[in-house]
Design a protein around this nucleic acid. Sequence first.
DNA 1: CTAAAGCCTCACACCGACGTTAGAGTCAAG
DNA 2: CTTGACTCTAACGTCGGTGTGAGGCTTTAG
Lengths: 151, 151
Amino acid sequence: MQIGELSARTGASVRMLRYYEEQGLLEPRRTESGYRTYAESDVDRVARIRCMLSAALPAGVVGKTLRFLLDGRPVIPEEPAERARLAATLSDELAALTDKIAALERSRDLLAQIVADVRGSVVGPGSPGDPGHAEDYRAVRKAGPAVGVAG
Amino acid sequence: MQIGELSARTGASVRMLRYYEEQGLLEPRRTESGYRTYAESDVDRVARIRCMLSAALPAGVVGKTLRFLLDGRPVIPEEPAERARLAATLSDELAALTDKIAALERSRDLLAQIVADVRGSVVGPGSPGDPGHAEDYRAVRKAGPAVGVAG
DNA sequence: CTAAAGCCTCACACCGACGTTAGAGTCAAG
DNA sequence: CTTGACTCTAACGTCGGTGTGAGGCTTTAG
């Protein structure tokens, strides 16, 4: 399969596909004349790349993760030391990811609250004494960020 | 509170705080000499901003969402038409956010699988006939991206 | 009064994740 | 052989989110 077809089938622009390759996330073969040729499995692979990137996962993780999906079978270093380091790195990333998900869920809850309030809006200019849903917001806020905002 | 103190208390650099203001996410008062002065509530607010930005939420949503948190009390347009549009926009964002969370959870599961496998690694160079955990990976992959990768 | 620390604006620079263009080669069909 | 669709590399542009100054004003401490 050439790059154009892969692009059509995945929705990723040709530019993006070449970019992913540049980043080591794809490794198409080449014809004699230099044309990239992709395997069927790359369709899947591209979908996963886009999914992870769109979620703002660090590029490194994407790469490392994907290396394990090359053909559904991981390539794990044989030396135990290196394997340990790999495991450590990945599980750090896992923890970061978990935090990020939690943060997103709180944002989602907050957004849901807001949508509900805009919809069933009790609000208007507001009788000054009326507490409204202020406490709900504050509650969500208290559950709050908390996450380390891992830089 | 001046910008330096807010920076210290939130972990956001001074530069970032000014940037957030530039983007309409913060609106500190000014002293006569032009110094920014922040309210206590801005500590919370900054935390939320960083949390949402770090999760790659579209900047617009952050802004709109935060406007509702100004003082724990939303500012909702009075004209029903505009209110409806706002509700529609926000709930679109809510849907997108939900999808993104789902995608992230799948990525997390996948990553967890991988970590587990690297840890308890049954793998090594691998007996060629051994299916290993390939099916696990494939299963996660099948549950897979699916998300529209909302550009 | 002076020095130091903190603040201000302006502005250039970087990285990631692309879009876009330019100029050239390749390939299948007429 | 020519045309047109497709591909290649290389390079520049853009946008968001930052870092890092430069040059100047304000405030505080000695």
